[in-house]
Amino acid sequence: MKQTLLKVENLEVKFKTLEGMQTAVQGVSFDVAQGEVFCLVGESGCGKSLTSLSIMGLVEKPGIVEADAIVLDGQDISHLKEEKLRELRGNKMSMIFQEPLTSLNPLFTVGNQMDEVFRLHQKANRAKAKQMSVEMLRFVGIPDPEDVYKRYPAALSGGMRQRVMIAMALSCRPKLLIADEPTTALDVTIQKQILKLMKDLRRELGTSIIFITHDLGVVAEMADRVAVMYAGQIVEQASVYDLFQKPLHPYTEGLINSTIRLGDGRRRLPTIAGTVPPISKMVSGCRFHPRCPYATPACRENAPPVIEIQGRMVRCIRYAKEHKQEGGVHV
């Protein structure tokens, strides 16, 4: 068993609104091992970005982040002062985002924005920072790094900019890289290249990656372990093999079924009917019950327990002991 790099315990993100307190992320706990790719998957709006931003300490007002603990490399960072957190950001942990086109500042050159990291965290002087930046650009497979270094972001393609973002994020050899849908905005060929780059870099640097996506195809390609999120909660956690082999949660099952196509290109099942409830109108009981084909009256009443079976975790009443005794599913 590899060493744990990150441990998130009971994370909660709330927003104070005019209609009262709204909870966007609730009871989220997971571990990421050293060198592991941990995928967070779920439909848009289920709290993936907020979860990752909470780890970075980047949730903006009016968001309120609470957690029992967020332990990174042995240090609980859940209550760190902004000043201390800043020393970790871009250094021990870093992040890349969904929109490569807007994630770089249009008014500064690539070089200027890359240098910042080295000057800040490694106290490099101008010349040294430039040398390291160019080196880093070369490292992520940019063909003419000296030229790209001098360019403004507008002169680069989306795929190129995402490479620059990755280079920037990996500058200080972080222990944890969070990639929030890094390929969603890119076209398929570029997406493949970026995914390959990230896998290569992981192998080379041993960086742990939290990879966020809503695309199960990407999960299958990238992940070691997977957490499936639904409406602000993790509903299932398993190794990528187990998850695809035997999804436990009805939502996971629905996701997989709606992704896998038959040979003739038809979907075996339609996409899961219905939509994710908005955080302002959270449903009672199991948050998935309005869309769940297995829903029972009990599901509407009581929040389902978190159940651990065979090193996996699932949040569904069907796997509760008493339920199984009544003839429920067997694992």
């Binding site: 800043r86 871009g90 807007t102 500064f108 990291v117 800040l120």
Partner: peptide, 24 residues
């Protein structure tokens, strides 16, 4: 987005505001 990027790099608040935001 680029402001979030700047913050994710660990830059101080004043650098984010006066360098990255203000110029824009």
């Amino acid at each position: 987005d680029y402001i979030r990027t700047a913050r994710s790099k660990g830059l101080r608040g004043s650098t984010v505001v006066f360098k990255h935001a203000f110029k824009n």
